[in-house]
Write a protein that binds this DNA or RNA. Structure first.
Lengths: 121, 121
DNA sequence: ACAGTAACTTGCAAAATTGAAGTTATGCTT
DNA sequence: AAGCATAACTTCAATTTTGCAAGTTACTGT
């Protein structure tokens, strides 16, 4: 997925949005952050098992896009937390609609908790 | 993107949804179909210029997932239309939320027409 | 007979992804 | 003091996926 802002497939807001987060892993990472995960290791341990090099690269991208912020919470040894910005938290309605569709049309999908589906939008 | 129903990354409705339409082109095709395009050539001529082999493959997938239906509208020479099913039309709210986010956070994105953004959900 | 069109398919190079293993810095345990 | 553990990554070879250009099929229209 292209993240090079110099090349745009088009000015369509859907396509431009997808060029930021429309790949195999980014929305999975954002789901986890919205659900309260904060560290690299927590993200790496999700059931979907994202490869760690992919995780690192997507986190770098999300930070450069100002969707998350990387913050050092311990000096020795250095430990980091990843926090959503407002731009990142605003992905929630997209995730809610995908979850709604998934629950409606794909069998045996988990029903997300009420707080996730009904958080203000 | 995996479409093999035998392998699921997880039972998460978001992840399972993404495993159907979360690739570089599928939601672009669905956007076009929702916007009234019907034929292969119309889809191939979108500003994003999807490669034709990719288009053909994604259409096959969408048909096998019952998100669209392929219908012959002319016998000689054979000409086809692609029509959305209810499952396909139900992708609209997802596209609306992505468009909302794109318009809010990405510069110079087109504002979709009102009918697109406000269609019943 | 020839150009044109719709709807694809084929082949190959280039790019992206995966999985496994390695690295760095530090603390904890014996 | 040596060795094991942990967090947060990085590296690399082997796939896998993608993009591009060109080719194909079955007509129609001139």
């Amino acid at each position: 997925m292209t993240t090079d802002k110099n090349f745009l497939r088009s000015g369509c807001p859907i396509v431009s949005g997808l060029d930021v987060f429309g790949d195999k892993w980014t929305l999975v990472i954002l789901r986890d952050l919205i659900c309260g995960k904060e560290t690299y290791t927590e993200l790496a341990n999700s059931p979907e098992k994202i490869p760690t090099n992919r995780l690192a690269e997507r986190l770098r991208m999300l930070e450069s896009e100002k969707i998350i912020e990387k913050s050092l919470y311990q000096e020795k040894p250095k430990r980091y937390k990843y926090l959503l910005t407002e731009k990142g938290r605003d992905i929630l309605p997209i995730l809610q609609e995908i979850a709604r569709w998934g629950n409606k049309y794909i069998e045996d999908t988990w029903v997300p908790p009420k707080w996730f589906m009904q958080e203000e939008r």
